[in-house]
Simulated assay, not measured.
Amino acid sequence: MAQRHLAELNVGRLVADTDDPCVAEFMGALDRVNGIARRMPGFVWMMEGSGTPGTGNTGTKLEGDPRYVSNLTVWESAEALSHFVWNTVHRRFYDRRQEWFEVLGERHLVMWWVPAGHRPDLGEALERLAQRRAEGDSPAAFGWSYLRVRADG
């Protein structure tokens, strides 16, 4: 077992309320995409929402805004997360994100290393995101390009 795992937070603001037909395709795919993630080699943990089918973590409102949603996961490695993001059905939904999410105009993703067994809470994850937004990529809060540079360098 690895001594550290990779935590990841992704936030976004939906273009409409979760029950609006504009986001129905996205909402309808949450259980399937999250289920694939849970079955992937290297998956460790995912922040759970209400458990209501088709809602994912959309019940976890950021800043009190029901359209501002998050996804928080932990993976054994960057490679495991990368494989899920870019080589599964997740990629098809990622490529269409502009149909369902507003452009935030600021960083919406952060990753950081955690001790194996640690389950970050949303507060910790949002602090890491704020750090990345304020300071850019660092060993404490980074995005994909930082991982690629570090892996190559």
Rank of each mutant, 00 (worst) to 15 (best):
D121V: 08
N87K: 10
A130E: 15
G35V: 00
A151H: 14
G153F: 10
E127A: 15
D137W: 00
Q98D: 14
L104Q: 05
L147T: 07
V44S: 01
T73I: 02
V110T: 08
M47W: 06
S77R: 04
N34W: 02
R132C: 05
M1D: 12
N10E: 12
D19V: 11
V103P: 04
A24D: 03
A78R: 00
M47S: 12
S82E: 11
A29T: 05
H5K: 08
D65P: 04
A2D: 13
F26R: 01
W113I: 03
A29P: 01
A134T: 11
E124W: 04
N57R: 06
A130S: 14
P115R: 07
E76F: 00
A134K: 14
D137R: 06
D20T: 09
W113V: 00
D17Q: 13
Y68M: 12
A80E: 05
F26C: 02
E63P: 02
A7F: 03
V85D: 01
A80P: 02
E79L: 09
G51I: 08
A78K: 03
A16Q: 08
A140I: 05
A141K: 06
W113N: 01
L62H: 05
M40S: 11
V15A: 05
R107C: 08
L147N: 02
D137Y: 04
D31E: 07
R4A: 13
A141I: 00
N10A: 13
R133H: 11
R32S: 09
R39A: 15
E25C: 04
R39P: 04
R32T: 11
A2R: 14
S145V: 12
R67D: 08
G51W: 08
R32N: 06
K61I: 09
G153S: 11
G59N: 09
W144G: 06
D152C: 15
H118K: 08
E25R: 12
W144V: 13
T60I: 15
G28V: 05
A24S: 12
P139G: 06
H108C: 10
M111S: 04
G54Y: 06
R132S: 05
L109E: 02
W100G: 04
R150L: 11
E106C: 09
Q98L: 07
M47K: 10
R148E: 13
E127S: 13
A125G: 10
A24T: 01
R128E: 04
T18W: 11
R92P: 01
G105S: 04
A116E: 13
W112V: 06
A29L: 09
A125D: 00
G136M: 09
Y68D: 07
R150P: 03
G143K: 08
D95L: 06
V33Q: 01
R150F: 00
L81W: 04
S82H: 10
G105C: 03
S82R: 11
A141M: 02
S145T: 15
L9R: 01
R148K: 15
R150M: 14
E135F: 12
R32I: 01
G143Q: 08
R13W: 02
A37N: 04
A125H: 00
L62Q: 07
S82I: 06
Q131L: 15
C22R: 15
P21W: 03
P115D: 13
